[in-house]
């Protein structure tokens, strides 16, 4: 059975009787221990999708529809209290900026202890022991002493380790990591990615990794979903998608970033900028930046269909042409 089953997840915002989708009918499955990468640029809806799964969106200002089934339970049917029990124990999340996710005036120890006690009845001493345990598990130097420190006394990498420690207190079965290394230096990023990999293996924890970096996806993920303007435009096994990208946007993303190993060929940028959710072109949202666009692209939103390879799906009317052109080039 799938650990997580998301179907037709749509998040839309309503302004003056107009509605626009931030995330548009996103569906995917995730198995135990698997790592899924969600890739996209700013405004593609990748963080919003994660927040929706976590149940962290404000339902007053946003319309959330679709089904999220976690381990056989439909999350929408849970009472707020039951949902809260699940958040942080079975499903946990870490964010991009660890400084703004930690309380600046509380010691690290108190914050982890609070997290332990929020879900389980433990006395202070037990909770403290648990805190030391998890800090050791995330490879923090001097875990005992760390309990007495304040967030500002820690480096960025250490703060992110604290966030991860708090997330794995109850050995969740799903961890959602929203750009966990974007704010960190390269050598620290390597440390944190390795830590996430080890933890996911040791705890048999599924991981949803939200990132804009295709290199990170290649290194970490089994599956990948490419989001553009709220819709998944391409998905499949990570290696497969990165080696044989079939959507012009994915091809564009790969061509736009210089590679460390390649020679000084000129970059091929994608012209223009991603559209705002209020000004999406009709039909395929990517068509006015796409060099392959044909008149029929404006007529309807392309749905996902399989390429010649199994499990590799792409939402482009011209799929065949694009891959052909790539093969020639």
């Amino acid at each position: 059975m799938d650990l997580l089953n998301v179907s037709n997840l749509t998040v839309s915002v309503v302004r003056q009787a107009h509605s626009a989708a931030i995330v548009d009918s996103l569906s995917f499955d995730l198995q135990q221990g698997q790592c899924l990468g969600i890739v996209g640029e700013s405004g593609s809806g990748k963080s919003t999708a994660a927040m929706a799964i976590m149940g962290l969106l404000d339902s007053k200002s946003l319309n959330v529809s679709g089904k999220v089934i976690f381990d056989g339970t439909d999350l929408a049917r849970l009472s707020p209290k039951e949902f809260r029990q699940l958040q942080g124990t079975e499903i946990a999340m870490i964010f991009q900026d660890p400084m703004s996710s930690l309380n600046p005036v509380l010691r690290i120890g108190d914050q982890i202890i609070e997290c332990v006690q929020a879900h389980r009845r433990r006395n202070k001493k037990e909770a403290r022991e648990k805190a030391v345990d998890v800090l050791t598990q995330v490879g923090m130097p001097d875990p005992e002493g760390m309990l007495e420190r304040y967030p500002h006394q820690l480096s960025g990498g250490q703060r992110q380790r604290v966030m991860i420690a708090m997330a794995i207190v109850f050995e969740p079965r799903l961890l959602i990591a929203d750009e966990p290394t974007t704010a960190l230096d390269l050598t620290i990023q390597a440390q944190i990615l390795e830590l996430l990999k080890t933890l996911s293996r040791d705890l048999n924890m599924a991981l949803i990794l939200i990132t804009h970096d295709l290199g990170v996806v290649s290194q970490m993920c089994d599956e990948v979903i490419v989001l553009y303007s709220g819709r998944d435009v391409e998905r499949g096994p990570a290696e497969e998608v990165l080696e044989h990208p079939s959507h012009p946007y994915t091809v564009g993303l790969l061509g736009a970033h210089p590679s460390l190993d390649a020679d000084d060929s000129r970059l091929t940028p994608i012209p223009g900028a991603p559209p705002s959710i209020w000004h999406r072109p009709s039909g395929c949202a990517f068509r006015d930046r796409c060099k392959h666009a044909k008149p029929q692209c404006a007529e309807r939103i392309p749905s996902l269909f399989s390429t010649e390879r199994e499990h590799h799906k792409v939402a482009c009317l011209l799929n065949g042409d694009v891959s052909m052109e790539r093969a020639i080039a």
């Binding site: 564009g252 993303l253 940028p269």
Partner: peptide, 10 residues
């Protein structure tokens, strides 16, 4: 964003 980066680099 990555897609825009390349424009500026060029």
């Amino acid at each position: 964003d990555v897609s825009v980066q390349a424009q500026i680099l060029n």
